[in-house]
Amino acid sequence: MAFQSKEMAKAYWRENLTLMLWLSVIWFIVSYGCGILFVEQLNAIRLGGFKLGFWFAQQGSIYTFVALTFIYAKKMGDLDRKYGVDDDA
């Protein structure tokens, strides 16, 4: 194991899980929340020619997904470096 100690390995895994949890919450809110569960309420708001709920379901959630995967890759890269387990060496 490449970690300096068992505690470090645990801390790394915990930070990883916290990050995943937050990103999954956003993932859930934009798609299932805005796109499905609260679509009617959001449709009362308009974004140009789009009803907002409809926009989330057919456009907005997809843009958010793209952002989420890159945020995850970036943050995990930082985390790997912080704990000295990145693979660039």
Binding site: W27, F54, A57, Q58, F65, T69, Y72, A73
Partner: peptide, 21 residues
């Protein structure tokens, strides 16, 4: 129409899971 959104969200949102998990 709106019901077709299941394909749009479903076939892109899975990549977030794939990338993270």
């Amino acid at each position: 129409g709106y019901g077709g959104s299941v394909f749009l969200m479903g076939w892109t949102g899975g990549f977030v899971l794939l990338a993270m998990f």
